[in-house]
Amino acid sequence: QCIKQELICKWIDPEQLSNPKKSCNKTFSTMHELVTHVSVEHVGGP
């Protein structure tokens, strides 16, 4: 049986000017979605 898990993006953008810096905190249900999000939204490139 599949256990529902919540994956949370903890990326902190080093360019943020606010202190304390905020992490992204978007939630995902699969590791694939999380990896895709980080690749596209934070790292950039294909």
Score class of each variant (00 low, 15 high):
1 Q>C: 06
13 D>L: 08
28 F>L: 02
11 W>T: 04
29 S>Y: 01
37 H>R: 01
12 I>V: 11
19 N>S: 09
23 S>D: 06
39 S>H: 07
33 E>L: 02
35 V>A: 10
2 C>P: 08
16 Q>R: 04
22 K>E: 06
27 T>A: 09
22 K>I: 13
20 P>M: 10
10 K>A: 07
31 M>T: 11
25 N>Y: 05
43 V>C: 13
28 F>S: 01
31 M>V: 05
11 W>A: 07
7 L>F: 05
41 E>L: 04
27 T>S: 11
41 E>P: 00
9 C>E: 03
21 K>L: 09
44 G>Q: 06
6 E>T: 02
33 E>N: 02
36 T>R: 11
1 Q>P: 00
3 I>V: 06
39 S>N: 11
4 K>P: 07
45 G>Q: 07
43 V>I: 10
9 C>L: 01
13 D>P: 05
29 S>A: 09
9 C>N: 02
27 T>G: 13
8 I>A: 14
4 K>W: 00
35 V>W: 14
4 K>G: 06
16 Q>D: 10
9 C>Y: 01
38 V>E: 15
32 H>F: 11
42 H>S: 01
11 W>V: 09
36 T>I: 07
28 F>V: 02
34 L>H: 03
30 T>L: 01
46 P>L: 03
22 K>W: 04
3 I>M: 13
33 E>G: 08
39 S>G: 10
9 C>W: 00
11 W>E: 13
30 T>K: 04
19 N>V: 11
1 Q>W: 05
13 D>I: 03
40 V>C: 04
43 V>E: 15
29 S>F: 07
10 K>G: 08
33 E>V: 01
20 P>R: 04
11 W>G: 09
37 H>N: 02
45 G>V: 07
40 V>S: 11
15 E>C: 08
22 K>F: 05
24 C>K: 00
6 E>P: 10
24 C>Q: 01
28 F>I: 01
30 T>Y: 00
25 N>E: 06
12 I>R: 07
4 K>R: 03
3 I>R: 03
11 W>S: 07
42 H>G: 02
34 L>T: 02
24 C>W: 01
38 V>Y: 12
1 Q>T: 13
14 P>L: 04
1 Q>R: 07
5 Q>V: 01
12 I>W: 08
30 T>I: 06
18 S>L: 08
37 H>Q: 00
35 V>R: 14
23 S>M: 14
37 H>E: 03
43 V>D: 14
4 K>Y: 02
23 S>E: 11
24 C>M: 00
17 L>C: 06
7 L>V: 12
32 H>Y: 03
31 M>G: 12
7 L>T: 11
44 G>V: 06
33 E>D: 12
40 V>A: 10
34 L>W: 10
46 P>T: 02
9 C>K: 04
15 E>Y: 08
42 H>I: 01
36 T>C: 07
44 G>S: 09
7 L>W: 07
3 I>P: 03
6 E>H: 02
32 H>E: 12
19 N>K: 10
28 F>M: 02
29 S>P: 14
31 M>D: 15
44 G>H: 06
45 G>I: 13
24 C>L: 00
33 E>C: 01
42 H>K: 01
25 N>A: 15
41 E>K: 06
7 L>I: 09
31 M>C: 03
46 P>G: 06
13 D>V: 04
21 K>D: 05
40 V>M: 12
8 I>L: 10
13 D>K: 02
16 Q>C: 10
30 T>F: 06
38 V>I: 10
8 I>T: 11
19 N>D: 09
42 H>D: 00
3 I>H: 03
31 M>K: 15
19 N>R: 10
29 S>N: 07
42 H>Y: 00
5 Q>G: 06
30 T>N: 15
32 H>L: 04
28 F>R: 01
35 V>T: 14
39 S>P: 02
27 T>P: 08
1 Q>V: 05
20 P>T: 03
13 D>T: 01
11 W>I: 07
22 K>Q: 08
40 V>I: 10
14 P>E: 07
10 K>W: 06
22 K>P: 09
41 E>Y: 07
7 L>Q: 15
30 T>E: 06
34 L>C: 01
34 L>F: 10
5 Q>I: 00
25 N>L: 12
1 Q>E: 10
23 S>Y: 12
29 S>W: 05
32 H>R: 12
27 T>L: 08
19 N>G: 06
40 V>L: 05
41 E>H: 06
41 E>D: 09
28 F>K: 04
43 V>H: 11
16 Q>K: 05
42 H>M: 03
21 K>V: 09
33 E>K: 03
38 V>H: 09
34 L>N: 02
5 Q>F: 03
34 L>A: 03
3 I>G: 05
20 P>S: 03
16 Q>S: 12
36 T>W: 09
28 F>Y: 02
24 C>F: 00
3 I>Y: 08
34 L>K: 07
7 L>R: 12
21 K>W: 09
